[in-house]
Every structure is written in C-alpha cells, then in structure tokens.
Amino acid sequence: MNYMLMLYADEVAGSNIPPEEMKGFMDQLHAYREALRKANAFVATAPLARTDTACTVHVDRGEMKVQDGPYAETREQLGGYYIIRAENMDEAIKWAARCPAATWGTIEVRQIIDLGDE
C-alpha cells in the first residue's frame, strides 16, 4: 500500500531559519530518505515552492478563474511530500513520526487509493 505524507509547516518561519541550522535539517531529511530506501519503503519525495508563487484554477460553467495564492489560507502550508510503501496505516504513522519535518510542522498521512490499472 502506498501512503502520502503531506508536510505542512509555517513557510515564513521556515525561510527565516539561519543557513547553518538549515543545513542540519537538510542532513536530517537526507538521512530520513536513506532510511526509507534501506527499508524498501521509499517511493518518491519532492519539496514544493512557496505558496506566494502558487495559483489556483477553477472552471465555472465554461468560465475559467485563475487566482494568485494557495487554495486555502492557513497558518501552515503544504511544503512538500513523501510517498512511501507501508503495510498499513499504523506503519505509515510510524514512518511519519520519524520524519524530521514532524518536529517543525505537521504531517498529514493519507492512503493513496490503488486503482490497479497501471
């Protein structure tokens, strides 16, 4: 089963972290990915650009609406994700708890529905 770990954090606070400290966090994230790989649980990961460069698109009865900014204004923004392989939700939560991003933000764990039509 695949699960998506959605990493939410305050992106303004994030961009104010001094470079030295940031390197430490990056090392932790790198180590986390290595641990996932070793356990054959890694599928994919990517960071996302800041929400002030985001756009939302909606088509309403043929009329296209494009707006600046994220879909929802919240205190914490989606800043990246991991897709992992796990037996079940319990195991996916265990991996989320190991993710260093859980200490400076919040991780939403969602099962990815397998449509089985690859």
């Binding site: 932790q28 790198h30 180590a31 990915r33 190991r98």
Partner: peptide
C-alpha cells in the same frame, strides 16, 4: 557514515538526532 545516516533517519527524538549528527 552510511549506517549512522540510517540511524539518524530512523530517530524519532531530538536528543538522538543531535547525538548522531
């Protein structure tokens, strides 16, 4: 380095992370 990196990636608490880094 490889093994300690795996240990760092599996750590769930700040104390262990700081020590391993």
């Amino acid at each position: 380095r490889e093994a300690l990196t795996a240990a760092l990636g599996l750590a769930t608490d700040e104390a262990a992370r700081a020590f391993l880094q």
